[in-house]
Amino acid sequence: MTVPFLEVEGLTKSFGGLRAVNDVKFRMEQKEVLGLIGPNGAGKTTLLRLLTGILKPDSGSVRFKGKELVGHKLWDIVNMGVACTFQNMRPFRRLPIIANVMVSCLSPRSMGRGEWVKVVEAKAMDALEFAGISDMALEKASTLSQGDLKRLEVARAVATDPELLLLDEPFGGLSPAETELMAKSIRRLHKGGRFGRLHSEGPAMIIVEHKLQQLMKIVDRIVVLNFGTLLAEGTPEEVVNNPRVIEAYLGQQGGQ
């Protein structure tokens, strides 16, 4: 029997009386790109935070390549190969962009991969190059625009050499042109290959996004969350034509 790449079972998390994530169960294969959608407040961010150990679930399990992640520290999980970005970006504002990414390059996982790369600065630079913000490497993060901050988030996550990348609204607040660029970066990353000293094996991804049109073009499969519960699961076509999904989205003013 082969071990599943990612196996989530019975994951539950309450805030006071509110069940933000309720008995969620799904599986993922290696290199799969999974879209995670749902109306505002459905529990998408909470689910991602449970996967990376930022939050501790009340019950349930997350097995990544056969290893239980629940109970591990965030940094351990990142070093096992699961990286995440923050929906409301969290850059190190008073540090230059390059230093923001160097922190990720200094993680044990990133340092241990590719013995031929000992130069942290160079690897950080390549991550910035990949995300398309290398020309601003020396600027302070506080001077970046919304779109560039999103790119910085991606560069930071990619610099840890993840096998599973969790992106929380990578298109959030971006203009159509910026969205197109970001989508291109994501597809390029998924295809894998070398970006300078950065070696991507094409990580699996979970992408949370409200911009469904752009999301559809990237993902293999979509999971829909509503009030913390799994509502539907399937290919993009199946999901958008699912009456329960349409109802859930119409109940809240709909997706874009």
């Binding site: 990376t52 520290k73 995440c84 190190f92 230093a99 160097m102 922190v103």
Partner: peptide, 23 residues
């Protein structure tokens, strides 16, 4: 490099952890 991590911890400790660093 240690100094950069110290700086980053002051700025946002959670983000440092999410970068795989044992804060």
């Amino acid at each position: 490099h240690t100094g950069i991590i110290f700086h980053a911890i002051r700025e946002d400790e959670l983000a440092v952890r999410a970068s795989g660093i044992n804060t």
